[in-house]
Design a protein around this nucleic acid. Structure first.
Lengths: 330, 330
DNA sequence: AACATAAATGAAAGCGCTTAAAAATACTCT
DNA sequence: AGAGTATTTTTAAGCGCTTTCATTTATGTT
C-alpha cells in the first residue's frame, strides 16, 4: 500500500511537501500540489489512520457505548446521532460489552456517548479527569468534561400515573426496572410523588429488570392474585409487552380488567391489540442532540444540559375503571 | 497519560524491557516484570492503540458494515457476531453510511463483515486484492480473501410459494425488493422457478424497496383493483407489515380476502393480528457464523462457505383459498 | 547589480510502541 | 580462573505521518 514516501519519491519532492499538498496547505504551489495529488490518486493512496492518529493525538471518531443492541430502539438513536455528526468530519462507531471499556483509555476515540450502565460513574469521572469528553444519557454527572442529555423521566411517569388516576383507577401496580437504573429510579420517584397527592390509591410495587421476561413474570404474579380491576404501569414498554403477551394467555382482558401502560413507545407497542398506552419521545432527536453536544464539548464550547421532552400516547390497553364492568368471577 | 517511557524511567530500565514485561515475554525476569507491572498499574498505564497499530500493522478490531441501524434485525445479528468473537481478542465496531468506506483503506480495522449494498462488489474486490479479509452477507463473491455466509433465500421463497399454492391460491402477487438487492433477486428467482411448475397460477409482480412504505403502497395498488381473493408474497417482512397496516384501513381482510406472507420473521411480525406468516432463520447464528468465518480467514485457515437454513412459519395472515368464502361484493 | 523580502520546498524530529540484534550480566564446566 | 554458554537487558531502528525550523528559490526595490 502506497504511503507518502512513495508519492514523494515518484513526484521528486520531499515527504513534507507531499503532506502539505495532501492536506491542502497554501504553502505549496498549485502546480506541485496538482502533480502530487495526481500521483496520490494513481497510487490509490489513503492515509494510514494509525500514523496520523499517533501524530495528531486524535482520531476523529467518536464512540457510542450501548449496553446491548437489542430492539429497534438503538437503531433510531444511532440514526439520530449520525445526523448530528454530518459534516463534522467525525465518524461514529457503536460498541457494546466489555470491549467498550478499552476505547477511551487506549485513545481509539476522541469522545463518547454513554448509554450503558456497565460503566460505573466512577469510571466515567476518571476518564473525564483525564481529559476525555463525554455525553451521558443514563445518569447525572457533574464535570466540566461531561455533558448530559436526559429524558424527562419524571414528567413521563407523572403523565402516565395521572392518566390512570383520571380514569378512576384506585389500585396501581408499578413494575420497576433494575435497581441500578437511573431511568427506573427517576420514573419511580415521580410515581411516588404523584401518589403522595392521592393517598387513597392502593399501590403495589414489583421489581422487574426492563426485560420482556420480567414483565411476563410480573403479569403472572398479578394474575395469580387477581381479584379486581387494576392499573399497571410498567416502567418500560419492553416489560409491558411481556406482560401483555402473558395476559393474552389468561382470561384477563387488557384494557378492561387490567389497564396497562408502558414507557418508551417502542415500535412493537403500536401493534399490540389493543394498542399499548405509553410515553413517547423522539429517539432520533435524543441521538442528534447528544452528538451535537459532544461536538461542542470537544470544540471547547460552553454547553447547556439538554432535556428530551415526553408526551403521553393513549391506547386502548388502558380503560376507565368502572367496577360495574367487572362482574363475572375468575 | 503515562506511556512506557514514564514506566521505564520510574523502574530504572529501558523502554524495551518495559514493553517485553507488559507483553508477558519470557525474556524478562519474574521480579523485574513484577516491578514493572506494579509501576504500570500505579501510573494507570494503558497502551496507546495508535502507536501499537502503527507498529504492528494490525488493529485487532473488525468492522461490520450495515446499510442502516433500523429495526431490531441488526441487533440480533450484532449480538451473534459478538458471540463469535468472544475470547478472540478482537473487538467489533458497527458502522453505517459513507464513513464505513474509510475504515478498510485507512487500516482502522483488520477485516470486515459486509451487509451493505452501498458497497459495490468492485470496491470489495479491490479491498480483497489489497489483502483485506472480508465476509459478505449480501452477495456472491469469489475471491480467496472473501468468504460468504448466505441465507438460503431460494429455499425460503420456495417454502412460501408452495405453502400458498397448497392452500389453493391461484392468484399471486409478489412485491420485490430493490433491483440491486441480492436477496430480492434470489428470492424472486425461486418464486419463478416454482411458478414454472404451476403454469395455471396468475402471477403479478410489483416493485418495492424493502421498506414499510413501499409495502403499504403495493397494498394500496392491490386494493384499488381488488376483485377476488389473492395471495401476496412480500419479499421481506418490513413490506408485509406495511401492507398489513394499510389493509387494516380498508375492508379487505388479511387472512381471508388476502393471504399475506413475508420473509425474515422480524420481531413485529408476531404481533400483527392475525399473525404474519413468514420465513424464519436465526439471525443470531448468522452473525455468529460470520464472525467466526472472518476470524478463520484472518488466521489464514481454509474455510468452507456457509449457508443459513430457513423454516416456514405459518400464520393466520394466510388462509385457504376457498372462493365460496368470498361472496360479498366490494 | 546588489540587496532585502517573500514564497516554496526540504531536513529532521518525534508521536508511542515493537522487535531484531548487540551488549551486559550471570551461570557452567573443565 | 577463564573460556564458553545461557540468560537478562539495552541499543537502535522504524512503523507513516505532521510540523517546526532551516534552506533554497523567486520576486521586487533601489
Amino acid at each position: 500500500m502506497a504511503n507518502i514516501k512513495d508519492i514523494a519519491k515518484q513526484a521528486g519532492v520531499s515527504i513534507s511537501t507531499v503532506s502539505y499538498a495532501l492536506n491542502g496547505s497554501p504553502k505549496v504551489t498549485a502546480e506541485t500540489s496538482a502533480r502530487i495529488l495526481a500521483i496520490a490518486k494513481e497510487l490509490q493512496y489513503t492515509p494510514n489512520a494509525a500514523a496520523r492518529n499517533l501524530k495528531k493525538q486524535e482520531t476523529k471518531v467518536i464512540g457510542v457505548f450501548l449496553s446491548d443492541f437489542n430492539g429497534a430502539f438503538y437503531g433510531e438513536l444511532l440514526q439520530g446521532m449520525k445526523e448530528g455528526l454530518k459534516q463534522s468530519g467525525y465518524d461514529l462507531v457503536a460498541c457494546s460489552g466489555k470491549q467498550s471499556h478499552r476505547l477511551l483509555p487506549q485513545r481509539m476515540i476522541d469522545g463518547a456517548i454513554v448509554l450503558d450502565e456497565s460503566f460505573s460513574s466512577e469510571e466515567l469521572l476518571k476518564y473525564a479527569d483525564l481529559g476525555h469528553k463525554l455525553v451521558v444519557l443514563d445518569r447525572d454527572l457533574n464535570h466540566p468534561n461531561v455533558n448530559q442529555v436526559l429524558l424527562d423521566n419524571k414528567a413521563g411517569a407523572r403523565l402516565a400515573v395521572e392518566y390512570l388516576i383520571e380514569l378512576g383507577h384506585r389500585k396501581l401496580y408499578v413494575v420497576t426496572g433494575p435497581k441500578g437504573s437511573f431511568d427506573s429510579r427517576q420514573r419511580l420517584q415521580a410515581v411516588k410523588q404523584v401518589l403522595s397527592r392521592h393517598p387513597h390509591i392502593q399501590y403495589i410495587e414489583m421489581e422487574g429488570d426492563f426485560t420482556k421476561a420480567s414483565g411476563a413474570l410480573a403479569g403472572l404474579q398479578i394474575a395469580q392474585h387477581f381479584s379486581e380491576p387494576a392499573a399497571v404501569f410498567c416502567l418500560n414498554d419492553e416489560m409491558a409487552i411481556g406482560m401483555y403477551e402473558y395476559l393474552t394467555t389468561t382470561n384477563i382482558r387488557v384494557g378492561r380488567d387490567i389497564s396497562l401502560i408502558g414507557f418508551d413507545n417502542i415500535e412493537i407497542s403500536q401493534y399490540t391489540q389493543p394498542r399499548l398506552a405509553t410515553i413517547d419521545y423522539s429517539k432520533q432527536k435524543w441521538g442528534w442532540l447528544s452528538s451535537e453536544q459532544l461536538l461542542k464539548l470537544i470544540a471547547g464550547e460552553y454547553v447547556e444540559h439538554e432535556r428530551i421532552y415526553v408526551t403521553l400516547i393513549k391506547g386502548d390497553s388502558v380503560g376507565a375503571a368502572l367496577s360495574s364492568h367487572f362482574t363475572e368471577p375468575f
